[in-house]
Design a protein around this nucleic acid. Structure first.
Lengths: 257, 257
DNA sequence: CGTCCCTTTGAGGGCCTTCAAACTGTGTGG
DNA sequence: CCACACAGTTTGAAGGCCCTCAAAGGGACG
């Protein structure tokens, strides 16, 4: 793990955390200035290595500046469970405002560039500034909404549908991050890992991918996935935009008051 | 649904929401006074009826003063999916700070007494007061931690283990609410509903309950469940106290700074 | 051109579902 | 007090989805 200072990370002429939070709640110039005082350390992590270790204390809020990651744990019988994939540009959740040992390890699935914001400074700021607190709250609510949908998929759908659901979830999240166009995205994750995420064997992921392709829902080419029938698939797997919390849902004045 | 006014609900000589939030973040006398100005409406809902309807606008934050509830939806193929059980004393999540249509219906599993706090007033307060914002944030984090564990159970455990996990989750949540003693609790939920929660058929819930009893992990008597081997079961189903966010994890000064 | 990692394909078995029916407890009306 | 209806639990048997083990196929890299 190489380490460097990066208040202004390259390729990003601003403060990454400010950019993310301001999507979730209107921030004043002063809010932004307060946030800008909290500078991140930049880390580079190469594919396959852990950058958060389970049971280690959490001191920082990590943002994936670039690359994919997985939060996982190894269960007592040796099987691996993947809680969540983290995408380029996303905040890795479960790390704030906790100061407890990490509940899940995080592994780089590709080469990763990481921004680490010190928890203590953030915690202090959140306790002083209600707008920033609400912004974090809203971000948490957004991530929460995807987790609820994962629960729905795991409990209510079969393997075929779960994988279709995952394709739509990733497509949606990547579109929000500006990393998917034309219903197409890159999926640099091996099938065994997808299996650990969706609660099925990697071999079965393969069969279901194949069937989704044969049924015309998706097309695959190496690591690229294109959703061919987004509407049809969404209906099949119970995926709805309305189930995802968007910024407007939170700070738009109520239409019903 | 009968309706009444209840700033000071009977059997509760205080402001229920204040009591809950102050568990999650230290509140000043002024904070409590601000919260106390937001008065709740009390509703009574009889067993089996819905009190939140999917796609209806959310105007209030509901707290279950008494009784059990389930958040559920009916999927396009007619199957029911239960997202979460809500226990007496708990805030029903997914309702704040949203003003969008409800994503899940909520059904009373027993006779229920409900406290409804107007979202608009709460939203206004949260935007003014950082401590109350952090308290809500922390509460959300707490609920989030249980959801993460549900995902782990659904993706990583078989039916037998999932049901054991649920027993421990409910026991833990009820203990926190002061409604379980001696590893024993009342479970007024039919097995079919538990199946919809855990992603398995109600009939299989029965078989797994039976096996958990035969293996000495639990004892059942009508609707009462006693966990006989809490440690053993916890290890089997990967249930850890450390996976549940507690108040101290959030506002205790960092040990590592 | 060989190695390694991952994907793909095949066959057998187990977990869980599905359909069905018997059983139990509870409330209701005769 | 009993007969009955009703809801939920319990038990049985057959079948399907998914797992498990295994091996072959493909692509990237040296």
């Amino acid at each position: 793990v190489t380490k460097g200072n990066a208040d202004t990370p390259k390729g990003n002429n601003g403060h990454a955390l400010t950019a993310i939070l301001s999507r979730w709640h209107p921030l004043t110039r002063e809010d932004r200035a307060s946030l800008a005082e909290i500078s991140a350390q930049e880390y580079r992590v190469s594919s396959g290595t852990d950058f958060i270790h389970r049971d280690d204390p959490v001191r920082d809020l990590p943002i994936l500046q670039d690359g994919w990651a997985a939060q996982y744990r190894v269960m007592h019988d040796g099987r691996r469970f993947v809680l969540k994939l983290s995408l380029p540009g996303e905040v890795i959740d479960g790390c704030f405002p906790l100061r407890e040992p990490a509940q899940y390890s995080a592994e780089a699935l590709t080469d990763v560039t990481l921004l680490l914001y010190p928890s203590d400074s953030l915690f202090h700021l959140v306790n002083e500034n209600p707008r920033i607190a609400v912004a974090f709250f809203s971000l948490e609510t957004y991530q929460h909404s995807f987790l609820r949908n994962r629960v729905m998929a795991l409990a209510g759908l079969n393997a075929y549908e779960r994988l279709g659901h995952l394709c739509l979830e990733l497509l949606t999240r990547l579109e929000i991050l500006g990393m998917a166009e034309n219903d197409t995205f890159n999926l640099p994750v091996k099938q065994e890992t997808l299996g650990e995420l969706l609660g099925m064997h990697g071999v079965h992921i393969n069969r279901m991918f194949r069937r989704l392709g044969a049924d015309g829902f998706i097309a695959r080419n190496k690591k690229t996935i294109q959703v061919k029938d987004r509407e049809g698939l969404a209906q099949l797997v119970e995926f709805r935009k309305a189930d995802i919390v968007e910024p407007s849902a939170i700070h738009t004045p109520s239409k019903y008051s």
